[in-house]
Design a protein around this nucleic acid. Sequence first.
DNA 1: CGTAACAAATGAAACGATTCAAAGACGAGT
DNA 2: ACTCGTCTTTGAATCGTTTCATTTGTTACG
Lengths: 338, 338
Amino acid sequence: MSQTASIKDVATHAQVAVGTVSNVLNYPDRVSQRTKERVLKSIAELGFVRNDAARQLRAGQSRTIGLIVLDVGNPFFSSVARAAEDAATALGSVVLVGDSGQDSSREAHYMDLFQEQRVQGLLISPVGDVAERIDTLRERGVPTVLVDELADTERCSSVSVDDQEGGYLAAKHLLDLGRRRLAFVGTPSIRQVASRLKGAQRAVAEVSGASVEVLDSAGQTVLAGRQVGNSLVERAPELRPEAVFCSNDLLALGVMQSLTMLRTVRIPEDIALIGYDDIDFAISAVVPLSSIRQPTEALGRTAIELLAEEQESGGTKHRAVVFTPELVVRQSTAGAPN
Amino acid sequence: MSQTASIKDVATHAQVAVGTVSNVLNYPDRVSQRTKERVLKSIAELGFVRNDAARQLRAGQSRTIGLIVLDVGNPFFSSVARAAEDAATALGSVVLVGDSGQDSSREAHYMDLFQEQRVQGLLISPVGDVAERIDTLRERGVPTVLVDELADTERCSSVSVDDQEGGYLAAKHLLDLGRRRLAFVGTPSIRQVASRLKGAQRAVAEVSGASVEVLDSAGQTVLAGRQVGNSLVERAPELRPEAVFCSNDLLALGVMQSLTMLRTVRIPEDIALIGYDDIDFAISAVVPLSSIRQPTEALGRTAIELLAEEQESGGTKHRAVVFTPELVVRQSTAGAPN
DNA sequence: CGTAACAAATGAAACGATTCAAAGACGAGT
DNA sequence: ACTCGTCTTTGAATCGTTTCATTTGTTACG
């Protein structure tokens, strides 16, 4: 009894055929009440637990869905991951999360791994160029859904958020407050950030006399935000922007700390400040931070749904679902223009 | 070529026996250079990828290690998880992360799942009482290592951090600054928090004239911290504590926000403040926050090592490794006593 | 030339589940 | 008593890999 019992052991113990035990587990209606009880009793007595490997081998496919994210520590991704897990659980599947850490070799490693595991499907926020591998997977019957990246629908499905719209919303909001001299803080070398900037510029172009200055930050962290914030404080007041849009909440919190710590600048009176992502900390900042909320739960849930669609259609039909981000106004951009 | 090629297909294509293909993959030295090349060429041409389910079935065990945490969103656990993943990767294993969300039914679900997967071993931060299940797993040859919880070494191994010592360190530090009237903020109903409080009380008992008041918070979040902070601000100055020790950095940040926002209290001059966990935000707070750092990487790495030890010893020898936390002094507790 | 020694390659058996065609059991209807 | 239909149960075949006892091939040596 020390080692694990197999279905055969159960069959022997209950004095039935192995097929019957399998039926008890998978098609209980096919089995008479009497035998069912006997089998279940044996299962309990022997402590039988299904061997998933054997089951998968026979089925030719696992009940596993692979998810590769850029950084599990990032609240955006951990939220997407959690939503995906919940949606998958409802379908009787399990999500395996791999963290590429923005490293394309790690990304490749996880793709290999998931392929060996014969995952049902793959959700991925790609780092490198994965187009070819996705083609290969599709040929093998493994559907892929890009996450937070727009897909060529000839190739696969995708769920993403309209970053340009998000940027537009943020800048429009600042302009609506009456602010004209805007600053954008972020690293436009990242595609998502570039789109947000583009959206902001579009909003600015719609208002005469408005301008936006781009402040390239060293990274997307609180510290990077502080550095930018310090450089703003050092400026002569008349050279400071009237409103700042950061490509990410961490940056915004850093900027906020610099500005409020030295107490030379008031938020939102002197400078209105808005971030992006609406992380949990945004609401609990010294000055509650306005932000652009991305529908992370919807992203995760929809990603799983698209995967299911792909499976049903045999991997022929692809869809690119684009969500619209939402403006969340808090104290950091509250009140009338100065 | 649309579907996945098996080892048999490779064998046919390369005109060798299946055993030879297997040898090329697992024992390359047993195969001559010539055939090896031929086989590898066929593998590449057919795009063959090992079927892990079949491999596991034959091996009787997977290369997977299960990890069940209380909350993946919590930086403490995500850091432990990452360290465990890295250590496991080095051993050629994969870590599957399950999030119990402090819910014992979800915990049980993941335990079932991992058992079906025939994981090599299980790392778990338990919610409910899992002693019996661990016994069962041990009988089945699945070693378990408790994470952030001290184990009965008759039963299994564990990695944990000395919470009482952490509490002692924090309180001692505050006392060393000359502060006498301390406050402890947290939810002592959680075991770890209770230990930290106990440590703090021990430190206080060592100093004559010192006292510690316990402020039970509604949760362990920034918001809960703010509420406590507000209640402190409302007090008459002479009734306020001289130093506050929060059982968690989020709480501490909340307290800090309340105190600094209203500008009636200075940190650290009027109230010295220390948190616990040393999360990334601690260093970037308005007033950089002192904290107690837990060796999360060591926890994750060691958990995997203990698992390996268990496997080698056949699951007979268990060890409980306890790490000592570390005091990190920053501005929130800097300077001389008032 | 015979054979011992070794290397390389073979292919059937096994892992544990599911599937499915076939057999068995049983009662109703004639 | 016989046939038919329905409900249960059976057990061999299958999935793709690894393992290992055998066979085959090659070289060296007496």
